[in-house]
Amino acid sequence: MNDNVLIKVEGLKKHYKGGAIKALDGIDMEIRQGEVVVIIGPSGSGKSTFLRSLNLLEYPTEGHIYIDGADITNPKVNLNRHRQKMGMVFQHFNLFPHMTILGNMTLAPIKLLKMPKKEAEQMAMELLERVGLGDRAAAYPGQLSGGQKQRIAIVRALCMKPEVLLFDEPTSALDPEMVGEVLDVMKELAKDGMTMVVVTHEMGFAREVGSRVVFMADGMVVEENDPQTLFTNPQSPRLQDFLAKVL
């Protein structure tokens, strides 16, 4: 693995109600190119807030986030330009219901990257074939199952050729039998060397695919390690307690 730091987080804090609620309470992290960082933790631990802070869907109260060396918390930095490089996959898919699958995928590349329509559609079709949905290009999101929607959401993000993909509990809204097909796509991506930050409750995925697992609680990083060590030899009582409940 190379040492190319893609995302650097320094002292990230997110407070609500003037500090009465501390969703994030001082987080430092470095994410290198090609890493798959899996964030686990009990609900309310701030893991989703942290992930959403990485592309400023949440505005931190304090701290800095550097993407490719640029501090995106600085108001003078072009945030939209940086967001283009960070794909995001949501728990509830958030496909655009008024557009076809192909329309969903090609909208941003055509409008933002100024890609010719033909080229964008060809790229989208190739990606659709890769996730086994080549025959649904003309369908509307309302006609698809949850698992299919989430696979589309992943390839929609890929159409922008992002440097990193952020996953916010991508399988939590799915019926159990559809979780596998989405995780398979994510594993495939990890194998291809995509940098990923994944918030999930899928411990199997964390153990198998993660290059690093981060355990968060009360808005802080309590423990982080390679998955093997973290799952078999947890140090902090909080993590031991958490693993005892979920494994």
Partner: peptide, 15 residues
């Protein structure tokens, strides 16, 4: 309109 639609657009890089 669900806030997720705004977030999806913004996360793709749209203003």
């Amino acid at each position: 309109i669900d806030n997720g639609q705004f977030e999806a657009g913004r996360s793709l890089g749209f203003s």
